[in-house]
Write a protein that binds this DNA or RNA. Structure first.
Lengths: 233, 233
DNA sequence: TGATTTTCTTGATGCACCTCAAGTTTTTCA
DNA sequence: TGAAAAACTTGAGGTGCATCAAGAAAATCA
């Protein structure tokens, strides 16, 4: 699962990631040396709830899910992580085991950045610390948003919010027609939205029969964004 | 609402807070000078959703709620903040408005630590940056826990989890009898747990009639912690 | 390409929790 | 201390979404 280090390649990947973009080449090189490259086929479990972390992950390509399990064995997806995103930072700063499971949804390439490299970089580079702080803050906001959605929105509103959040449609306004591709299987998205696949299916077809979206496989067309945004509020 | 600065008093408060405990006296003094002391009577709105932050808050005494409102005007409490806790750090690191409202539940004394002081301290003191990172990470974990609870637990399980989390009863095991005091009105706690006051009331009395708790006003006695913990799973 | 597995849909039914409504108790404060 | 307000309880009825079940479509793979 873990390849041997290939600093030059790793370095190139790192220096394109937002976290490390403004860091000097020699420092990136040092960090790159502490990285582990992980080629994980679909279905690989990267860590389990309770495992002890010693770094964070950067997704080079592929996709994975962070989940937790209920006592009854039901699975709930907290987050879907795609190429370019990082995960596991928060737990790295606490002396605690992972609160979630991580499993790849597709064949993926990941970079594991060691805890010691991160701590060292924080010491040397103030702006790196600020970037980590900003990164955690963004994630925190995302979770606040989710808590709000679970508490106050109906399942349909959550679905619409999800569709609008794809491709940053939220900011885009007007009555333009947009097409997007569902980033994962419907069961996966349903779990992310805290609804069953059955309900997800019914709601999609509700929106279709109301003329708010068109669907063909994983491609969804929104003829009128504003109309969809207004629906269900 | 904002008193004039009283560096010496402020300094004393700061140096007792976990965030600043290990910081040298002269640096604490500098931070203290950038603080604003806020005496907020019950019901004071500290900031509204959409306000622009320029620092974070430390609760010296009192209690407040962080909430968001649905389109229909319904209020949901995300977090109850009590003496010794801080809030508003995450939003400070992003150039974004507050995603929530903050309102005092009781007469409170708060300290507002300015953004500039925090950023300066991060520059000067590496371990301060790590403390802020750890602080955000803890909050992130809390929210992950909440998302899990909203998604997978029943209302009763959330209530039991809340009772067990009071006074750190979770770690405490055995069949000891413990008494705790509800930290706020029942409607407030109910909202925090994402249930209606009516359901909250019914569930409390369910637990009472099952002999799992005894209640008298705001005092709740748990005769057998393990028994309560096992119930509803 | 056709067979097998996986994913998705559709229907019938159920239930956990909400809403509305009307007490009752506790707190607040003149 | 007593009256008004706020907080809490209890009941009846409704509903959004889950569950269970079984069939249709799509993806996978020999």
């Amino acid at each position: 699962m873990a390849d041997t280090n290939q600093p030059s390649k790793t370095q190139a990947i790192l220096s394109h990631s937002p976290l490390f973009r403004e860091i000097s080449p020699d420092e990136v090189e040092r960090i790159a040396r502490s990285c582990r490259e992980i080629h994980a086929p679909k279905g690989t479990i990267l860590f389990q709830k309770g495992d002890q972390p010693n770094g964070f992950y950067l997704v080079v390509f592929g996709q994975l899910k962070l989940t937790f399990l209920s006592q009854t064995g039901a699975e709930k997806i907290v987050e879907i992580i795609s190429a370019g995103q990082t995960f596991g930072e928060a737990v790295m700063f606490l002396e605690r085991p992972y609160p979630v499971y991580a499993q790849t949804l597709t064949d993926s390439l990941l970079l594991h950045v060691s805890k010691s490299a991160v701590f060292e970089e924080i010491e040397h580079n103030k702006s790196f610390a600020l970037k980590m702080l900003a990164g955690l803050s963004i994630r925190l906001h995302g979770l606040i948003h989710d808590v709000a959605a679970y508490s106050l929105d109906t399942a349909t509103q959550r679905l619409i919010g999800f569709l609008l959040s794809q491709e940053g449609l939220k900011s885009q306004s007007g009555h333009a027609s947009v097409t997007l591709k569902l980033p994962a299987g419907k069961a996966v998205i349903a779990s992310r939205l805290n609804i069953t696949p059955e309900t997800f299916s019914r709601m999609i077809h509700d929106l279709v029969s109301n003329g708010l979206i068109e669907i063909e496989g994983k491609d969804i067309t929104i003829p009128d964004i504003d109309l969809l945004r207004k629906f269900g509020s």
